[in-house]
Design a binder for these strands. Sequence first.
DNA 1: TATGCACCCTGTAGCAACTACAGGGTCAAG
DNA 2: CTTGACCCTGTAGTTGCTACAGGGTGCATA
Lengths: 136, 136
Amino acid sequence: MKIGELSRATGTNIETIRYYERIGLLPEPDRTAANYRSYGDPHRARLTFVRHSRELGFTIEEIRSLLDLSDDPARDCSEADRIASRHLAQVEEKIAQLTLLRDELTRIVGRCRGGVAADCRVIEALGDHGHCESAH
Amino acid sequence: MKIGELSRATGTNIETIRYYERIGLLPEPDRTAANYRSYGDPHRARLTFVRHSRELGFTIEEIRSLLDLSDDPARDCSEADRIASRHLAQVEEKIAQLTLLRDELTRIVGRCRGGVAADCRVIEALGDHGHCESAH
DNA sequence: TATGCACCCTGTAGCAACTACAGGGTCAAG
DNA sequence: CTTGACCCTGTAGTTGCTACAGGGTGCATA
Ligand SMILES: [Zn+2]
Ligand SMILES: [Zn+2]
Ligand SMILES: [Zn+2]
Ligand SMILES: [Zn+2]
């Protein structure tokens, strides 16, 4: 399969596929006589793994570790568990942070009664954290 | 006040202050005889506005628009309201997205029972979105 | 007077994870 | 034989900083 086909099969931008190869996340595929990249099913599975992990928010380096692990089927899987748990914790923290932000923004947006910039409570609130109710 | 003092007064990295000047977010300050930047209270207020807005998640371009607005006190403030509301909507969307992610990750992490990588349900789940319960 | 040290300057390069060209080659259909 | 779709490499841009390298300035101390 050529790169365009792999791109369509996995919903991945062609440039992104080449990028993953360049950084060593995907192995270099064979080439045709015309120097075109030629992929097989293992490549497709690996790229699917990468894209799905990215959609779940894992970083490239985390994915690299997870791939190393799955390349070595006899290894203990506890590292995968640790990586996923740590990532979950980060997502939970990010949610907590954004929730604080959302509450603060809701308060700020609600203060505007229209008028000129000089009197705008939104602009005033942005210039002074003292008007905030949380540490955000 | 010199840049180090402004840095301490606002909790902003010195390099960041110079960066904001370079991209035109902060005006070029006067210079001392030794070519050191020299700031006054209006600079401090402006930088405080920028930092607080950044902490609330506004982009540099949004902050640029908000600053333009507050530089022109007679202007109608509805644009500020629009920018803040749109940002709030984005934050809410991000929270919704991360919540889906969190639920999916929780499910995935919960599947690991230990053992070798070949049998790991975490690695299996990462390689196949078919195991997911939401669109995340 | 020398010298150490904290501070300041400019300019450039790096981070994450892509994305977007420019400038060229390949191949099948009409 | 040309048109169009596809492929190649290499480089530069995105966002919002951060980290030097390689220099200059200013004040206190030995
Ligand atoms: Zn207003
Ligand atoms: Zn605040
Ligand atoms: Zn496992
Ligand atoms: Zn999924």
